[in-house]
Design a protein around this nucleic acid. Structure first.
Lengths: 242, 242
DNA sequence: CATCCGTTGATTGTCGACAATTTGTATGAT
DNA sequence: ATCATACAAATTGTCGACAATCAACGGATG
């Protein structure tokens, strides 16, 4: 069994220099990345004590991180029973996650048309350039990173609280899905699509924008892959609420 | 200024008898209910220490509850700066939240057609009956409660992990919205609609089901109300991730 | 042989104290 | 007066220890 140190890719947190806010936040990023990259298999358990010692922190931050990941749909947890990594079914991605993403992005891009600043345009251009570099180097991780930032910039620019919040809970699952099953994507074509999106934004024409965004989000590849959700040991799910 | 004890409607947790799982979970339900019912105004700060003493627990559970509420879009928090109650704009409800809800419910109801059991049908009938009682007594809270359970039963019956999870992060905002602005709803008509939904499920006919669900979720009342989002004191939002 | 309890080990939930960070206020220089 | 700086208050972040709960095991019992 591989040690988690290798899987999380981090030996110890908070070296003193390159910080990233509170520890809990750093833990979220490390674990999210590890899960999305496929270092943890669906069904695998995540034990607070183990993770905390391996990440060189206490259980508190790890606990919070797990709750955050639960909200991003990457893990599921049960009272007194812990957390397990979650899978995503092909069907749910195509019929639920992608349509929701389309709703979010359509709204955001349309809103961004009158609000986006020159500064943000520049930043978008930079991300496209980064994607291009990543595509040339066939660096999937960097490509995904730039892709993500591109969309986050636009969605944040629209300045709608809930849209941004929901986006942040939706994209990790989609990313995890593509990382697990969708390797066969054409990175170069993705670069082109983002270039088109940026161009559409710059026209400030709603019709053009709408066409481009719907083309971009369009269902990619109906690959039909089985899911492997799993409960920790047994027993039903956490009770709903109110 | 009203004391939070009155606003949360709870003096102390865990009387010993009617429990509801871990304390943190109970805190979530109390606070969520209080926010949805309008006991806290958008922009208002939620201080961990204050809440914990008033709820008779330590800060740990309160912290977790606040994170959960953040994921439900009821509050927004910033590192070292705390949490504030969030509002929802009319526009975002109509153009983002409702469409997402439609996606979720359409998928769930269609799936439920072949999977729902007789037991669940009975439970659905019971909720309709409860709604009817609540409508007769003009008890909005009970009505909403039954309404919520009705949908949760169907969505859970579809057995799709992420759909359920996303649903639980979407409905509180919609509820809060209607509680704040949408008082003028016809409870009796809502009962009828749910009766129709139940009937549609029982026909097991996809076309009938689709028609009913889209009618039910249809945009209710474009009321055009201003939002009052607010940041705690100043400074930008929490950094994204990955 | 199956089933019903106690017991035990592993893991999560909760607490209280302390550290880190931010905001507001007072102080002093220009 | 305005601005910069240092301090103080309020609040969140983190830690380590302890309590509560659950799943598995094993022995007694029918």
């Amino acid at each position: 069994m591989t040690s988690s140190v290798e899987r999380t890719g981090a030996v110890v947190l908070d070296g003193g220099a390159g910080k990233g806010g509170p520890r809990g936040q750093q833990v979220v990023e490390i674990l999210r990345s590890a899960i999305i990259m496929g270092n943890y298999e669906p069904g695998e358990r995540l034990i607070e004590a183990t993770l905390s010692t391996e990440l060189g922190t206490s259980r508190g931050p790890v606990r919070e991180a797990l709750r955050q990941l639960e909200n991003e749909g990457l893990v599921m947890s049960f009272p007194y029973r812990g957390a397990v990594v979650l899978g995503v079914s092909d069907e749910e991605v195509q019929e639920v996650l992608i349509p929701i993403r389309l709703t979010l992005e359509r709204y955001s891009f349309m809103h961004a048309l009158d609000r986006i600043t020159e500064e943000e345009f520049a930043e978008l251009g930079k991300q496209v350039w980064l994607m291009e570099q990543a595509a040339a180097a066939d660096d999937l991780a960097k490509h995904v990173e730039a892709d993500l930032r591109f969309h986050e910039i636009v969605i944040s620019a629209s300045g709608q609280t809930h849209t941004v919040q929901i986006w942040r809970t939706i994209w990790p699952r989609i990313r995890a899905y593509f990382f697990r099953y969708g390797r066969g994507q054409d990175l170069t074509r993705m670069v082109e699509e983002h270039r088109d999106l940026l161009a559409a934004l710059q026209t400030r024409d709603p019709d053009v924008m709408l066409t481009q965004i719907e083309r971009h989000i369009a269902v990619p590849v109906p690959a039909r892959v089985a899911t492997k959700d799993a409960k920790p040991r047994a027993t039903p799910a956490r009770k709903a609420g109110s």
